[in-house]
Simulated scan of single mutants.
Amino acid sequence: MYHDTFDLERVKSVLEKDPNIDVVIISNSITLSELYWRRIQDHLGIKKEAYVVTDSEHALDGIPIKNSLILKIGRWWENRNAREFMLQTSFAKLTLPITFITPFWKGGEVSE
């Protein structure tokens, strides 16, 4: 792993303690959410689906907030569902702001 792995180590610790925890991601862009989740999966060698809070009207339908790990990525507050979503995160197991996850290097190539 790289020297700038504080956020990654926190996520790793939570997922190791509770591998069945649901992961919910909120950011201002679905592309950014998917990129960061792919980087986390590559670094940790896991295959797990994450729920993504999007800007759509029904973004919170079916999202398991209770006892889940919430990852706030980038300018998450620009998501139009952020206010309503954050009001419900008191039921989450843990909420972590993610500032940076380094790209994953596989065989000298950056995996994006």
Rank of each mutant, 00 (worst) to 15 (best):
N20S: 15
Y36W: 08
K17M: 11
F100V: 09
V11N: 11
Y51W: 01
E109V: 05
T5C: 07
K93T: 06
A92F: 11
I101M: 09
T5Y: 06
I65T: 13
L44Y: 07
V24T: 03
R38V: 05
S111N: 10
D4G: 10
S90G: 14
Q41K: 14
R83S: 03
V52T: 01
L96F: 09
I21A: 09
E84T: 04
E34P: 00
N79P: 00
P97E: 13
M1V: 12
M1S: 15
D22I: 04
A50G: 00
R83N: 02
E57K: 14
N28Q: 05
G62S: 14
E34Q: 08
H58K: 13
H43I: 00
E9Q: 12
E16F: 13
R75M: 14
S29Q: 09
R38G: 06
N67C: 04
Q88E: 12
M1E: 13
F104R: 05
F91G: 09
V23C: 04
S33K: 05
Y36D: 02
T31V: 05
Y36P: 08
L44V: 05
R10L: 13
G74I: 03
G107N: 08
E109W: 03
H58W: 06
Y2V: 11
D61V: 08
L94P: 06
F100C: 09
S90F: 14
M86H: 03
E9Y: 14
E9D: 10
T99Q: 12
I21G: 09
D7H: 06
E49A: 06
E16I: 15
V11A: 10
S29T: 05
P64E: 11
S68F: 09
G107R: 11
E78D: 14
N79T: 00
W76G: 02
L71M: 08
V110W: 00
N67W: 07
F85C: 06
K72S: 11
F100I: 12
A50M: 00
K17D: 10
E57Q: 13
D22T: 12
E49K: 04
R10N: 15
W105S: 08
L15G: 15
I98L: 12
V14L: 13
I30T: 11
F85T: 03
